[in-house]
Design a binder for these strands. Structure first.
Length: 301
DNA sequence: AGCCAGGGTCTGC
DNA sequence: GCAGACCATGGC
């Protein structure tokens, strides 16, 4: 990969293992959106925010990536890490491909990279994600940014920090229409601001302790904790088990995940999750089998 | 209209 | 420990 500063921003050349839609639309982050192409040479464009910065990023007909209006300093400080550009995903995919299902999953979306997001943003995002769909998660988080963040560019707002959210009550979150999740968010802010839960150090703690630390928060269970640890603290040994991954495990890996996946289980999970949700890896694509159908009592009448 | 959405809590065995 | 009801809301 070659990164160089140009008048337009940062240009990334010879970066084969990176696709904007694969990476930004595979359910790991909620603050980037497809954008209008600004010139015929652009084949894809996204815009969004991370770490208090706005970014417009595009690919051109030659396959090069441009981070628009980004200085070298900002690239080094924010985006190089965010897009995990120092990790060799070709090598990881090669290792995962020893398993036939994983070979298909990595071939299905070869441009997935696991982002290194801000820890609080990841935790907050996946608290909101529970029993929710991606569209509405994006909407709620965008309202959260608008209410409590700082204005950036193009109508985007920064993701609010803990100190910007300190003191919020459930009723302050009413405009978000986040339902029963509002009280979980308030508890997270209170415990982190009050020092009862410490996010610093979660990158280095033994994984069980890190998970337990996050699960002190009301509304954070194993799945949300694992998502926060994987996407916000780059604990790639974490494998968030949602309904799709449970189905992948039971139907394709009844004996457990293959050895070649264990060193990077979280990354393997990202390929499998995306393939299971949008591809044809499972017997009945598009319909996760629920163990039991929910029945609701009919109102009298 | 009814079902579902990258779950978690609470209750009752 | 484990199953089932319930949680708020909006998209489809």
């Amino acid at each position: 990969m070659i990164a160089q500063e140009t008048p337009n921003g940062i240009l990334l050349k010879e970066l084969p293992d990176f696709s904007l839609p694969d990476t930004l639309d595979c359910g790991q982050c909620f603050t980037f959106y497809p954008a209008e192409r600004s010139s015929p040479e652009e084949t894809q464009a996204y815009e969004g925010t991370a770490f208090g910065r706005y970014l417009r990023i595009s690919r051109n007909t030659q396959g090069d990536i441009t981070l628009h209006h980004v200085s070298w300093e900002e690239y080094e400080a924010v985006w190089r890490g965010y897009f995990d550009l120092d990790t060799d995903y070709h090598k990881i995919k090669e290792a995962l491909s020893q398993d036939e299902t994983l070979r298909k999953a990595t071939a299905y979306a070869p441009g997935i990279r696991v982002l290194r997001q801000d820890g609080w943003e990841a935790l907050c995002s996946f608290i909101i994600s529970q029993n929710n769909n991606v569209k509405r998660i994006q909407g709620i988080l965008s309202l959260l940014c608008r209410e409590f963040g700082r204005p950036l560019q193009q109508g985007f707002y920064s993701f609010p920090t803990i100190s910007e959210l300190k003191g919020v009550a459930v009723e302050d979150l009413a405009p978000l229409r986040s339902g029963f999740r509002a009280k979980y968010l308030v508890d997270a802010v209170q415990k982190i601001a009050g020092g009862e839960v410490c996010l610093e150090g979660l990158s280095a703690l033994p994984i069980d302790e890190a998970r337990a630390e996050l699960m002190k928060i009301h509304g954070v269970g194993p799945k949300v904790a694992d998502c926060a640890l994987l996407y916000g603290f780059h604990r790639i040994e974490c494998c968030p088990m949602d309904v799709w991954m449970k189905r992948v495990l039971s139907e394709l890996y009844p004996g457990g995940f293959p050895d070649c996946a264990l060193p990077y289980l979280g990354i393997a999970q990202q390929y499998l999750f995306h393939y299971a949700r949008t591809g044809d890896i499972l017997p009945q694509p598009g319909k996760p089998a629920k163990p039991s159908g929910k029945k609701k009592a009919l109102p009298v009448g």
